[in-house]
Amino acid sequence: MKKSLFMLLLLFSICTLSAQQQNDSIASLYEKQNEVKLNAVMLLAGVFEASYERNLNEESSVGISFLTPYDNENSDADINYYISPYYRVFFGKKYAAGFFIEGFGMLNSIDRDYEVQESGMYYTYEEKSVTDFALGFGLGGKWVTKSGFVFELVGGIGRNLFQNDYDDSQIVGKFGFNLGYRFN
């Protein structure tokens, strides 16, 4: 009787340890710390945007995005580049995934036309590159597959902080459908 009870207890503990190891390996797929992403919507518009994100814990992450146009003929964007660090807080049940809110900063450079009066009543326009810094917030959702692929939908709006004579638009935005990969 003692032998069969001991064997049953041993079998039960081995099964429990095996189930625990399987759950840990599935959880570790989601708990990888690094992500690289490309914005697929912007690629179609002639603009390259790449992001790197580091997951701090299950509820927050920090990252940085870089955007620059690569097809100036087909792109309507006046933007030369932006570099945007951000911080995110997640509200999902999975590790650093689900609905999130984001606070971001954005160093941006935009081409603007401004008027120059030559003589009399004739005006000409000259293009000037204007650099500014914006603060803003965004909302989005992130989904992560078991194999580590990341799908993200994000949108945000911000305001440039510095006034200048050449920039009439103080509002900046960022949006996209990002595709990427999560790794250690």
Rank of each mutant, 00 (worst) to 15 (best):
residue 72 N to E: 12
residue 165 D to K: 09
residue 87 Y to K: 01
residue 160 N to S: 11
residue 165 D to M: 02
residue 19 A to E: 11
residue 104 F to P: 06
residue 37 K to E: 11
residue 148 G to R: 04
residue 102 E to Q: 13
residue 35 E to C: 03
residue 62 V to C: 07
residue 46 G to R: 03
residue 82 Y to N: 13
residue 82 Y to F: 12
residue 138 G to R: 02
residue 136 G to P: 01
residue 79 I to H: 08
residue 144 V to C: 00
residue 129 S to W: 04
residue 160 N to P: 09
residue 17 L to H: 11
residue 86 Y to L: 01
residue 123 Y to E: 10
residue 68 T to H: 13
residue 60 S to R: 09
residue 141 G to N: 13
residue 108 N to F: 06
residue 163 Q to C: 05
residue 159 R to V: 14
residue 91 F to R: 04
residue 127 E to M: 06
residue 164 N to C: 00
residue 45 A to D: 11
residue 35 E to W: 01
residue 130 V to S: 05
residue 95 Y to P: 02
residue 127 E to D: 14
residue 86 Y to N: 10
residue 35 E to L: 06
residue 76 D to I: 03
residue 32 K to Y: 04
residue 54 R to K: 14
residue 64 I to Q: 03
residue 66 F to D: 03
residue 63 G to E: 01
residue 103 G to N: 07
residue 53 E to S: 10
residue 117 Q to I: 15
residue 145 T to M: 02
residue 57 N to E: 08
residue 103 G to I: 15
residue 47 V to K: 09
residue 138 G to L: 00
residue 101 I to D: 04
residue 24 D to L: 14
residue 28 S to W: 01
residue 49 E to G: 03
residue 90 F to R: 01
residue 78 D to F: 08
residue 47 V to D: 14
residue 60 S to Q: 05
residue 152 E to S: 14
residue 32 K to M: 09
residue 83 I to E: 05
residue 42 M to R: 10
residue 62 V to Q: 05
residue 118 E to W: 07
residue 100 F to S: 00
residue 131 T to C: 03
residue 20 Q to A: 13
residue 126 E to P: 00
residue 153 L to P: 00
residue 105 G to K: 09
residue 152 E to H: 08
residue 58 E to I: 09
residue 161 L to P: 06
residue 96 A to F: 00
residue 157 I to F: 08
residue 118 E to Q: 12
residue 44 L to A: 14
residue 38 L to V: 15
residue 67 L to F: 09
residue 99 F to H: 06
residue 121 M to Y: 11
residue 153 L to G: 15
residue 40 A to C: 00
residue 89 V to E: 05
residue 125 Y to D: 09
residue 81 Y to P: 05
residue 69 P to C: 09
residue 117 Q to N: 12
residue 21 Q to S: 12
residue 146 K to W: 04
residue 91 F to V: 08
residue 24 D to R: 14
residue 39 N to H: 09
residue 113 D to I: 00
residue 165 D to L: 02
residue 45 A to I: 11
residue 73 E to T: 13
residue 132 D to A: 11
residue 42 M to T: 15
residue 55 N to M: 08
residue 21 Q to G: 08
residue 126 E to N: 11
residue 91 F to T: 15
residue 87 Y to M: 07
residue 69 P to E: 10
residue 98 G to W: 07
residue 58 E to M: 08
residue 163 Q to L: 11
residue 141 G to L: 11
residue 30 Y to A: 02
residue 56 L to Y: 07
residue 22 Q to L: 14
residue 126 E to S: 02
residue 159 R to D: 07
residue 86 Y to F: 13
residue 150 V to S: 05
residue 143 W to Q: 08
residue 36 V to K: 02
residue 134 A to F: 05
residue 84 S to D: 04
residue 161 L to K: 03
residue 49 E to Q: 14
residue 158 G to R: 04
residue 89 V to I: 13
residue 122 Y to F: 11
residue 152 E to P: 02
residue 102 E to G: 03
residue 19 A to R: 12
